[in-house]
Design a protein around this nucleic acid. Sequence first.
RNA 1: CGGGACGUAGCGCAGUUUGGUAGCGCGCAGCGUUCGGGACGCUGAGGUCGCGGGUUCAAAUCCCGCCGUCCCGACCA
Length: 569
Amino acid sequence: MRASKLFARTLREAPAEAEVASHQLLLRAAYIRKLMAGVYTWLPLGLRTLRRVEAIIREEMDASGAQELRMPIVLPAEPWKITGRWQTYGQEMFKLKDRHDRELGLGPTQEEVVTPLVAGEFGSYRDLPVNLYQIEWKYRDELRPRFGLLRGREFLMKDAYSFDRDVDGLRSSYRTMFEAYERVFGRCGLDYRIVEADPGSIGGDVNHEFMALAAVGEDLFVSCENGDYAADVEAAQASTPEPAPPGDREEMVEIFTPGRPGIQDVAELLGRPAPDLLKCMLYDAGGRTVAVLVPGDREVNQNKVARALWPAPVRLFDDADFAAHGFVKGYVGPQKMSEDALVLADRSVRGGANWVTGANRIDHHVTGANVERDFRVDRWEDVMRVNEGDSCPRCGGRLHIGRSIVVGHIYQLGTRYSKPLKATFVDEDGTEQPYQMGCYGIGLSRIVAAAAEQFNDEAGLRWPKALAPYDAVVIPTNMDQAAVVETAERLYGELAELDIDAVIDDREVTAGVKFADADLIGYPVQIVVGKRSLQSGTADLKVRSTGQRSHAPLAQAARAAVDLLAGAP
RNA sequence: CGGGACGUAGCGCAGUUUGGUAGCGCGCAGCGUUCGGGACGCUGAGGUCGCGGGUUCAAAUCCCGCCGUCCCGACCA
């Protein structure tokens, strides 16, 4: 490729809209351009990098025995209504209507398409297992698109779906994908962690996330200092404290706490630490009132509450709910909860006694509230968000919270989709069985952003060679000297013969501009030919990722570039 | 959806407070000098100042409405 023809106009300054490094650099280096919030055009350089990610994934998926297909992006609403996701995906799904007023959606993921498809084709246990995948653009009307490609409304995703006759088969298919994912992210050169995760709106049971480490990552994960536990913060657990010893139980006393609705307010007024207070959050779970109890210094993890109450849709009480049920916001306590309400306490509440909590009366709290004597707990569950420094549920070690970008997520769905969609096969004994399904996603466009986030410096992008749009760039520094241009062209030709995908920067600009652009775009190897090097009969080489510089006789320069590339990260 | 900021040439910005001929840098085009880490000089093109309405002799500037973009938040009683 000739830089003089390449559709890539680099920017000296980052557009004001870009905040994070990956977004700024991908714009500056002419990989992407924005069309609207969360939607980007992929320029030639960006598309080449995206395709390299795609090639790696396709190779590993094919090697794992999965088969590629292509499903539609425009989808009918009906199957989505059957699985309930037309509702649960809600506003996040792009919805539209055709000219006959039929409801359609743009695919955010395709369980509702692939499941009936397989049921219609592979209806016998003899056909199983089968794993189908596609690499396709996905659409999600994100609450807040941000950070360029990191959270877009249109993004490229590899989604795979496995179908097995039983749970053992599912586990085996899952294991195969797990290992394929390790190879994919390893080959992409990413620094990543595998964590236990929350299934989110996809549903299902066992699942893992593959997280690329990044300071700007939106996803928090918990890891044990001893390395035996790692989990998404939405799913993470901490070890549960010992139950409080029986013993001194204060009387429950109502106290006057005017204008002190918050935990901090009350703690300050009474001069007691927040963990002495009992936080009582009210939720509506499909019409039923649920009181969730956690210690005052803790936060409720709503995902965990939702899982505990599955399949009821869980939402926090709003002002209307408070009014309708006669609760006073800011002064809620679990005492005298009605029979039809559910009292759900985090297990850590067992570790406390003599709680300070709301008195269910404006401007009043109580002290000395105790489980059983003063309020009942219907269920003990883990519903708490893990904090930095909590104890590891495996070994008791210290838990640390880190930031990352989720680049892959794999799920054991079981029959979550096959049952409602009545997708069944005939088993060996002649009975109809729902498929045991798994689904497996990788965000390709997000990998590009995550890699840009992990591999950059002041000068620009520093791709691992597996992801760079080209392998090398040849830079003739003196375009006015025929001998320089000739030599550079010859080198460029030699590289092609050696199967190196190179760019020759034949633009009529000064050397400084070429160097700056080469660093910005992130060609793994730079080969410089100029007046100076011609005199000494050598070419100057630089490895972008390490900054390492070297020389090679002109006759061996192409060969030297190949070797440097082979040795580069 | 709530809060905040912003919207002036392809990009980065000034001008808005105090209404009066729309500017700077980069980039772009032409000519010349340069030529190994974002060169220099001269000349030039490029803007319905986000959109609509209002106030005014006069609006980028003041007022109202809308749109767009970015940031923070969107469970913590």
